[in-house]
Write a protein that binds this DNA or RNA. Structure first.
Length: 530
RNA sequence: GUCCCCGUAGCUUAACGGAUAAAGCAGCAGCCUUCGAAGCUGUUGAUGGGGGUUCGAUUCCCUCCGGGGACACCA
């Protein structure tokens, strides 16, 4: 990890100064650089060039540094640029190939248990595009956290209690009556989707007694969710039922604890959680039933009780108002609210006839994850979501998405991987790459690829810290692009130069390895041929 | 009314407060007699408006404009 190493080398020499290690976009400007001279200049009241001079001279005098760096330069307006030595880059390639799929594994998360909760859609309808966004993101974030040493449990919370499920059950029962020929009023507050009718028909065929419709309906919805998730390439470790919290008395216990600690006020026959001087939120309704808030507080306590160091919840942005409430509740129970991290993703809306429509399970207006999967495919969907920031607002135009799926950059990445396979398949003259002739790797495109590979562990650790999962997608695209450029210009297979072929084969293996790791982290398939 | 998010090239998106704002698609001009043209090369083209902080602002602050979302005894 060059970045950390540089930071240490610098701060050891100049303690007490805050600075950044940057990665310039232009090769000319170095592989890494620092703005330290600007910071120092300000502190001392001198020019950045003046301020950086001593440090650069000191660094240049250090022979140890010279093993990794070939050049250190102080350039106007005051950046200090570092250039990696070619030998260092070549030697790193050996590590990539030797570690294989484990390359980039690290341990900042060692011993930390994370509960990563995502999708958690109400079991009242099929999963939709919005859920696909959370699924793609959550699954990949989990994979990356695991690669950096965290122990991750991917969890799906099922709200199998409350108004919404009651309505679902009611809707199914009504449709069943309707199918039996009874005249029913099917109000607009009922769930309108076709799947309700299908369930009703199925339950009639199976002669499910009315008293069991509830359990059957919930189970059917969960099965649907499991199925869709699986097709998206997401396997949850834990499906957690809200009803469990009620049955075990954990909800009541949480309430009692909040009350005893003085955070609960009673008003209008309901019980409220004090948020601050102006705000309060209902915990127990006047009819005695509990709200999602109290349930969620009990749920979070339950997670901590299960030994998780922290919990990361991925929610749609429409729940942003709930963040403060839940954190307040959790803090009231005496937990550090920072142990509860809530990531919000902006909503995915549907564009229909040029109009933006809000998706709603109740009205039956939504794009299903399953439809998307069959029309566009898992890889294109996942990469579509993974290459965008969570804060990006998306208007999903399914026609456009279908058109664009053929041009989805994911194929660009997979193609690079297939091309590598072709190369390996052609080198049947059983030549195994050796590490002897790596000096032969000196073309611009080769060095570019080496730098990409060296940077990979930093990208992974970066995402594990800042949750900017799309950085990985961007990195992978970049790596694939650099490989395509190399491929056009230089040949791996060299009939008359076995040393060069050997060196390039090793480079090809390095790229192949990292591409596979990236594709796996993002849950994308790895076609050997295309 | 209060709060959150967004506004970057014709379109979809990038850019820890850093250097000449980066890609893909679309457009234009080229490249298949050597590992796969799902590729490569060249080219046109952008930070919504106005202030401020800073050595330096797409990024932070204020304001205006435009868009999305939340402000329930629904979850």
């Amino acid at each position: 990890m060059i970045k950390k190493w540089l930071r240490k080398e610098i701060s050891d020499r100049i303690p007490g100064v805050g600075f950044d290690i940057l990665m310039p976009s232009e090769d000319m400007l170095g592989d890494y650089s620092t703005n330290l001279a600007f910071v120092l200049a300000k502190k001392k009241g001198i020019s950045p060039i003046e301020a950086g001079k001593d440090l650069v001279e000191e660094l240049l005098g250090d022979k140890e540094l010279g093993k990794k760096l070939r050049k250190i330069q102080l350039v106007p307006p005051g950046f200090i640029n570092f250039y990696l030595s070619e030998d260092y880059l070549r030697n790193s390639l050996v590590e990539v190939v030797e570690r294989g799929e484990k390359f980039g594994n690290s341990e900042p998360g060692k011993g930390v248990k994370i509960n990563l909760e995502f999708v958690s859609a109400n079991p009242t309808g099929p999963l939709t595009v919005g859920n696909a966004r959370a699924a793609s993101f959550g699954d990949t974030l989990g994979n990356i956290l695991e690669k950096t040493g965290y122990q991750v449990t991917k969890e799906y919370y099922i709200n199998d209690v409350g108004n919404q499920v009651d309505k679902l059950v009611e809707s199914v029962k009504l449709r069943m009556k309707e199918l039996k020929g009874e005249k029913v009023e099917f109000g607009s507050e009922m769930y309108q989707g076709e799947y309700i009718k299908e369930m009703a028909q199925e339950f009639l065929d199976k002669k499910i007694p009315e008293g069991h419709v509830r359990a059957w309906a919930i189970n059917a919805m969960i099965d649907k969710a499991k199925n869709s998730s699986k097709k998206m390439g997401v396997e949850f470790d834990e499906w957690f039922f809200e009803s469990k919290l009620h049955e075990s008395g954990e909800v009541e216990a949480a309430l009692a604890e909040l009350e005893s600690k003085g955070f609960v006020i009673e008003e209008d026959g309901a019980k409220w959680l004090k948020i601050n001087n102006e705000q309060k939120a209902v915990l127990v309704k006047s009819d005695g039933s509990t709200t999602y808030l109290l349930n969620d507080i009990a749920y979070t306590k339950n997670k901590f009780g299960r030994g998780f160091t922290s919990t990361i919840n991925i929610w749609g942005a429409d729940h942003h108002g709930d963040v403060v409430r839940l954190k307040t509740g959790v803090a009231a129970l005496g937990y550090d609210p920072d142990r509860l991290e809530i990531l919000l993703h902006q909503l995915v809306s549907i564009k229909e006839d040029g109009e933006i429509q809000k998706m709603s399970k109740r009205t039956g207006r939504f794009i299903l994850m399953d439809d998307l999967l069959s029309e566009i495919g898992k890889d294109a969907i996942r990469f579509f979501f993974l290459s965008r920031d969570l804060n990006t607002h998306m208007e999903f135009d399914i026609e456009l998405a279908k058109k664009q799926s053929k041009e989805n950059p994911v194929f660009y990445i997979q193609y690079a991987h297939s091309r590598l396979n072709s190369i390996f398949a052609k080198t049947t003259n059983n030549q195994q790459p050796t590490t002897n002739d790596l000096d032969l790797l000196k073309e611009k495109e080769e060095l570019r690829l080496l730098k990409d590979l060296v940077r990979f562990p930093e990208v992974v650790e970066g995402v594990a810290e800042n949750y900017q999962v799309h950085n990985l997608g961007q990195y992978t695209l970049n790596l694939a692009g650099d490989f395509h450029k190399f491929y056009e210009k230089h040949h791996v297979i060299q009939e008359n130069d076995t040393e060069l072929q050997s060196a390039r084969l090793l480079l090809a293996q390095g790229v192949h390895t990292v591409l596979r790791i990236c594709l796996n982290l993002m849950g994308l398939s790895i076609p050997e041929k295309m």
